[in-house]
Amino acid sequence: MTEVFRGMWVISYRELLRFVQERTRMLGSFAMPLLFLVIFGAGFNRMIGQLTPGVDFIKFMFPGLIAMTVLMNSVMSGLSVVWDREFGFLKEVLVAPLNRYGIVLGKAVGSAAVAVTQGIVMLVLAPILGISIDFMLVVKLIPLLILISLSLSGLGILVASRMRSQQGFQMLVQIIIMPLIFLSGVFFPINNVPVWLEVLSKINPLTYGVDAIRQLFLNSNGATAGPGIGDGSYPLGVTVLGHNVTILEDVAIVAILGAVLMTAAMLAFNKQE
């Protein structure tokens, strides 16, 4: 048991050490969400107008972009595994008296810490965009982001446990992550789209992570995920079989996903030679 804990803290310690020393990565991971925020925000905001009273497109998209930041940084846990394998450092880790499950947990915890920090830093943009954040919002947001981030770190490590090159991993990330992001309701409410898109989005577990974050924001901004645009015919949140999914249900779905991914990641990582 001590070897599980030592593995966890030693590995996460190094992940953080690396993060602090790589300033480009720190800046780089903000670039994409910022780009979306500025371009999409400026492009669509006036055209779309209010989605529900008090919620314009930027307010709608912003929580989604926090989710996106967390997601992209979490999956990078896998890149770090591939990087270590390519540059040999993984051997140093694997021959050390550390439990392999602990190593996986350490990678996940380390990259989750990084991802959550990045997500929280995004909050400084909120006042500029006219989004109010209060203390309770942040208190609720942090554990939620940690949960989402740990789940997706599991995905990153699972993918990475068989990959040998960084290019390969980047490619796979493009194939897996981009659809996950675009189908998660970050950019549009998924209740007023063609059926195929709606189905795909509702199968995507990330949708529920985005939904949970968005509901927190909407609630604290005096809006609800309930009745939406114009005549209030559909909600901004996710509905499954006519039922408005609550934050707790969102959390449960993400937690189950996380448990599955993390278990699979541990098994895959342990099996490698």
């Binding site: 030592r6 310690y13 190094r14 050490l17 690396r18 040999g88 880790v93 050390a96």
Partner: peptide, 23 residues
Amino acid sequence: QDPTLDEYLTAEQNLRFHAYAYG
């Protein structure tokens, strides 16, 4: 045969990591 150091860390940080890992 091939190096297994973390090239982005210092010599000391590499050794310290090892020390932590071996308790």
